[in-house]
Write a protein that binds this DNA or RNA. Structure first.
Lengths: 124, 124
DNA sequence: AACATTAGTATTATTTTTCATACTTAGTAC
DNA sequence: GTACTAAGTATGAAAAATAATACTAATGTT
């Protein structure tokens, strides 16, 4: 009851996934949107600092290349998870943030990181 | 309070992830164990039929090759998520099931599939 | 004796993903 | 008018993941 009480949960289900999702297995469909080596890490980074600029994301994920980061961000944008806001400034400033649909992934990501914290501690 | 009330939650944290996990980011660590194209699908399949035989898994995931399925199962076994039981029969019979550590992933996987069901319906 | 069965392994090929490097753009500071 | 900045793009190379194909082993059935 904290917020969004007047928001129909179905509001975000109209996203057109028809180019990505062609299966009736919910796991397969979800993996098409958030699967891959980087997307969950990107979302995790944006969750902890929203909105986030391109350069900040790059710094946080030091092993990703600029090219790959750009490509992954574009896919997340295409799938309605992120929005991209370009400021007409020089040098360029671009902010990425979760859309309402993207925010529905917050509990998913929290569940995953909680598992990692509890069961998958590094020995190093 | 349904079950496991006498099971210390820490019981399953002694798994040695030192060969896999070298990071202090819980998302990175978790992705090393359940990341990749197939692992969550394999776990999802085993969850819905546990134990599962190799051939049953192969049938459910019709696009995976035998070689890849074997490789992914071995990694999940190495990481303590699955156990592998070989029956001394001909033709061979091998059963895979979730270990106690693997069972801690059940809510994670349910969260992911629930998101897919709610927000990521196929348009096809 | 030949055949079918299941869960593999071995090897090579292909596809997909990611990386490295150099280049671009438009203002602003020097 | 040269240098600097942030957020890219372009190109080709390399690495990683996945696939295709053929093979094996032990035993029960025909």
């Amino acid at each position: 009851m904290k917020n969004n009480t007047n928001v129909d949960q179905q509001e975000f289900t109209n996203q057109d996934f028809s180019g990505v999702v062609e299966n009736n297995c919910p796991m397969t469909n979800t993996l098409k949107v958030i699967g891959g080596k980087w997307k969950l890490l990107i979302l995790h980074a944006i969750m902890s600092e929203c909105p986030a600029r391109f350069g900040e994301l790059k710094k946080k994920m030091k092993d990703i290349t600029q090219t790959t980061l750009t490509a992954q961000l574009r896919e997340l944008e295409r799938d309605g998870i992120l929005s991209r806001k370009v400021y007409a400034e020089t040098p360029p400033k671009v902010e990425y943030k979760l859309t309402p649909l993207g925010e529905t992934l917050v509990p998913v990501i929290n569940t995953i990181t909680a598992w990692g914290n509890t069961y998958c501690k590094s020995a190093v």
